[in-house]
Design a protein around this nucleic acid. Structure first.
Length: 607
DNA sequence: TTTAGGG
DNA sequence: CCCTAAA
């Protein structure tokens, strides 16, 4: 069935040669409409192998990802027979890689122009791989959904092709029964694909896809949660509080956090009666924009959501703005704004603006290089707590775990992208990828294969350096412990390097554990047993190239145990709450406890 | 190299 | 998270 189409190319090649454009072609309006493309961020190892981007990396991209991307993201990468030939051919190359399981479906990146820019800047070995998936079927970005399996990836069994086929475009409420992710359904104002609406809608039914543990296990339906609950969930997910009251935003963020992916549509949609409502005016505008703004322009798509419709009539970003965009708040800023917004809209705004401008500059630079020759700054409007903010779609490549090697490199270029790109050894690749939604399949598949890959890869992991973007939105967000590191990122090399000015090593990067990570950890312990950290890491975390080390896993588990037992019985209900620090849903804690007890009994063998 | 613990 | 002793 679904053949994966992907192209892996040397970045230079892509950018330098006309080919690049061709590849990008999928974005062309025409293509987009019919064949949404999902891009996946990939890093090319020195040996030429493709290494799936880290979830964080992806994350960054997602945040900024263009509307387009959002569409793409959703889509599961199946190539329809219909896929444009060119795409197919291109993709074919990558398909191999994909099969190998290197590709992870989580994030698709909509890099086009930006990529090109970045690439240009990056002159080293980095390569970009674009893999295009033609289908729009969206999948919940799930960390679990990684296509790690070499063989299986494309097998129908593993892949939910069938399911997808059956439920092509429409996300019927039926499909989504159970848990609805509004986010998925939500359409971004800028979403590219006109046709997308259905596609987006296609957001995978939570049930089927089993986006994430929380979703599956927790049976968390973000849609139904009140804002307060969402905020709690947010805290649980990211380890920090949020005052944001925008349901849409919260849901999206949470979803992103849970899934570790970017698929979640960025913006606000108005959902009414299970349908996404877009302002026609805007839509019309959009149409206009689409023509003008090549790749980025997006179409409005109306999606159906089963969510209990609460309406967010936030404006979808106006095309107009898109054109104008100056501001480019990072996530963090956005979040902050939203949070503070309530309190002080004015102040925050001003602050944001200033920062944004800075960012914008960078962005612009990048954009300039774009193939079109015309730099287009794409921004999207995000409504925060009632105030709208324009957010530039800047893809961030997240710094993955900083390897020592890299660090040195990184230091040189503190400023800009170039530095990031310049990791000598590894190259970042973006490839569009088709994503399989099938949770079960993905999950099972991902684990084993990946390991092999990693192994075979010859230890590249460590060597590889990921390109980073100056801004790292995620870091700020994720890091619950507000580390100064984030700040440093902008100014300095970015968190990637633990180096301190003093010359001493700084703490590694504080990365708050996400719910999804915790879930994976718990699963891993359940499967392999506590103490098998290396196993767990390989099987459960290698997939998305988590920077978590076995030691990290061990430490986290230790903390989980502590938390689980610390929890007094009285708390049955409140999974979250209190303890400013914590989160971690009850279920997980309970699981932890069970596992702990269970293993205590049967310590040694087994698994 | 991986675990287990202490810090 | 870091560091380190043990294995």
């Amino acid at each position: 069935m679904g053949t994966v189409v992907g192209t892996v190319e040397d970045c230079r090649e892509m950018f330098e040669s006309s080919a690049a454009q061709t590849r990008i072609a999928p974005f062309s309006p025409t293509n987009q409409i019919e064949n949404p493309v999902a891009y996946k961020l990939v890093r090319v190892a020195g040996d030429g192998r493709l290494v799936p981007a880290t979830d964080e990396e992806i994350f960054e991209v997602n945040e900024t990802d263009m509307h387009t991307a959002s569409d793409a993201c959703h889509s599961v990468g199946y190539l329809p027979a219909e896929g444009s030939p060119s795409q197919l051919s291109q993709l074919e190359e990558t398909s191999e890689a994909v099969n190998s399981g290197l590709l992870q479906s989580d994030c698709v990146e909509p890099y086009t122009n930006q990529c090109s820019e970045m690439l240009q800047k990056v002159e080293k070995d980095e390569r970009l791989v674009m893999i295009h998936g033609s289908h729009m079927l969206s999948t919940p970005p799930d960390t679990n959904i990684q296509f790690c399996n070499e063989n299986n990836m494309f097998d129908e069994d593993q892949v939910h092709h069938e399911a997808l086929l059956q439920q092509p475009i429409p996300l019927s409420s039926d499909v989504q029964t159970g848990c609805n992710f509004d986010q998925y359904n939500t359409v971004e104002p800028f979403s590219n694909s006109t046709a997308a609406s259905p596609k987006e809608t296609a957001a995978p039914p939570a049930d089927t896809q089993k986006p994430d543990f929380s979703l599956v296990r927790g049976e968390i339906c973000l849609n139904n949660l009140p804002i307060k609950a969402l905020q709690e969930t947010f805290r649980a997910t990211f380890g920090r509080e949020t005052t944001v009251k925008d349901k849409t935003w919260l849901k999206r963020r949470i979803t992103m956090g849970l899934t570790n992916s970017c698929n979640v549509p960025t913006t606000n949609l108005t959902i009414k009666d299970n349908k996404l409502v877009v302002n026609q005016d805007k839509a019309s505008v959009r149409a206009t924009n689409l023509k003008d703004a090549p790749p980025y322009s997006t179409d409005h798509v109306s999606g159906h959501s089963n969510t209990s419709g609460h309406n967010l009539t936030e404006d979808f970003s106006c095309e107009e703005r898109a054109a104008k965009r100056v501001r480019k708040p990072t996530r963090r800023y956005i979040e902050e704004l939203s949070e503070t917004d309530e309190k002080q809209q004015n102040d925050n705004k001003s602050v944001v603006t200033s920062k944004d401008q800075r960012l914008s500059e960078k962005t612009e630079v990048r954009s300039i290089s774009v193939s079109l020759g015309k730099r287009v700054t794409v921004t999207r409007v995000v409504s925060l707590a009632g105030s709208e903010i324009e957010v530039p779609y800047v893809s961030h490549v997240r710094r993955s775990r900083p390897r020592e090697n890299i660090m040195a490199l990184m230091e040189c270029h503190s400023s800009c992208l170039e530095a990031k790109a310049s990791s000598g050894e590894s190259n970042m690749l973006l490839h569009s990828e088709v994503v399989n939604l099938d949770p079960s399949v993905v999950k099972s598949a991902s684990v084993p294969e990946q390991k092999e890959l990693a192994t075979s890869s010859s230890n590249n992991e460590e060597e590889d350096v990921l390109t980073e973007v100056d801004q790292d939105m995620e870091a700020g967000n994720i890091d619950s412990s507000g580390n100064s590191s984030d700040d440093n990122n902008n100014n300095n090399n970015i968190g990637a390097t633990p180096m301190m000015q003093g010359g001493g090593l700084r703490r590694k990067h504080h990365r708050a554990w996400t719910l999804s990570e915790v879930t994976q950890l718990v699963e891993g312990v359940a499967k392999y047993g506590a103490g098998k950290w290396s196993e767990i890491k390989k099987l459960s975390f290698s997939s998305y190239y988590s920077y978590r080390t076995s030691v990290d896993l061990k430490d986290k588990w230790r903390n989980l145990l502590k938390a689980s037992f610390a929890q007094s019985p009285s708390n049955s209900m409140g999974s979250l709450k209190k303890h400013g620090s914590m989160h971690i849903p009850m279920q997980i804690l309970l699981q932890v406890r069970e596992l702990a007890e269970k293993q205590a009994l049967v310590p040694p063998n087994q698994r």
